[in-house]
């Protein structure tokens, strides 16, 4: 096990930064490395952190206005001409509003159009249900050719941005608005399609994507105090899924809990359940938002209310394991 975690991870004043900030830095760097990288935005340049790129490369930055369908289809045309276009808006609007255009003009054509969905998940907080994109993992992972990545923190978002700039495929990058705890380090690895073992354990596998990996690390610490030895996987790439790493872990622990700041239906947990159902049938518990919309509140109030903080997750996981050990909860 060699994943270098942030040593201050369990501190109350763990360093925090919006995941989207890492995207902004990654895009700037991608632009420096490859002059075919262009950036298109739908009137949210500052929010989606494209402003760094805009300042450095004004001639390669394109303001499209509040027009998400045009955003991705113009990008497809630019990709036909050899560009690597990054498009950004809030996830609720892109891919929320322009899914068919992404499918037909980017994914079906297998073009390197990058869809950056910022402000995904519940942590948009006070903006409420209309702006809390919870269905994006589900709708994007069913699209052939599409790579789907939900980075766990801002450091990883920077690496993921550079990786998708180079991979030549259509990709969806899911970003969060709120200041998210940093659990990784600059030395930590990131490769598209790889899952990472963050903590070894024998009793249960906890697999998180995006912001939920940090919460699972907190949960694992709470569980340890209750004599539950949890293994933690970080799965930033939802598609293609790192089947090997997930299966190897579940072979050791015999059961898995997934967590995501998104709808349970069709999301990351569903991808894991599909995998295990076909290749290694074992008990699965999927944690996320359960077939309902979000609402107004602070991010922490909402995560609390939806049972997605480390403390809540630990309680649910303990219950799941106790049920299995009692031979009842199947």
């Amino acid at each position: 096990m060699s994943y270098p975690l942030n040593p201050d991870l369990h501190s109350d004043d763990v360093q925090r930064e919006p995941i989207r900030a890492g995207f902004g830095r990654g895009l700037l760097e991608a632009g420096k490395r490859d002059e075919s990288v262009v950036a298109l935005c739908a009137d949210l340049t500052e929010s989606t952190q494209m402003s760094l790129f805009q300042e450095e490369f004004p001639e390669r930055f394109i303001e499209v206005g509040i027009a998400e369908q045009n955003l991705v289809t113009v990008a497809a045309g630019m990709a036909h001409a050899g560009k690597i276009p990054f498009t950004s808006s809030y996830a609720a609007f892109s891919p929320g509003r322009n899914w068919e255009q992404i499918k037909t003009t980017a994914a079906l054509n297998d073009l390197p159009v990058k869809v950056i969905g910022s402000h995904a998940g519940l942590n948009v907080g006070p903006d409420g249900a209309t702006h809390q994109m919870l269905e994006d993992i589900a709708i994007m992972r069913v699209m052939p050719n599409m790579v789907v990545i939900a980075p766990g923190d801002s450091i990883e978002a920077e690496k993921a941005t550079l990786a998708i700039a180079q991979n030549g495929a259509p990709a969806y990058l899911r970003l969060a608005r709120d200041r998210t705890p940093i659990f990784s380090t600059t030395d930590a690895p990131f490769e598209i399609g790889r899952a990472y073992l963050l903590r070894e354990g024998a009793d249960v596998t906890l697999a998180g994507t995006g912001t939920m990996t940090y919460e699972l690390l907190i949960a694992a610490e709470i569980l340890a105090a209750q004599d539950v030895d949890a293994e933690v996987l970080h799965v930033p790439t939802v598609k293609p899924l790192d089947e090997e790493t997930i299966l190897a872990s579940v072979r050791r622990t015999g059961r898995i809990v997934t967590a995501e700041e998104a709808q349970r239906a069709g999301g990351f947990g569903s991808a894991v359940a599909e995998l295990l159902g076909e290749k290694l049938p074992r008990p699965v518990r999927r944690l996320g938002v359960d077939d309902r919309y979000g609402e107004t509140g602070t991010p922490i109030e909402l995560l609390d209310a939806f049972g997605l903080t480390g403390r809540h997750l630990a309680a649910t996981i303990a219950e799941f394991i106790a049920g299995l050990d009692a031979g009842s909860d199947r």
Partner: peptide, 19 residues
């Protein structure tokens, strides 16, 4: 390009012309 679902050709042409 691929087409059929209507309304997306002009954007792609515009993107190409812009590039």
């Amino acid at each position: 390009s691929t087409s059929g679902p209507l309304g997306s050709g002009l954007s792609q042409a515009a993107g190409y012309a812009h590039a």
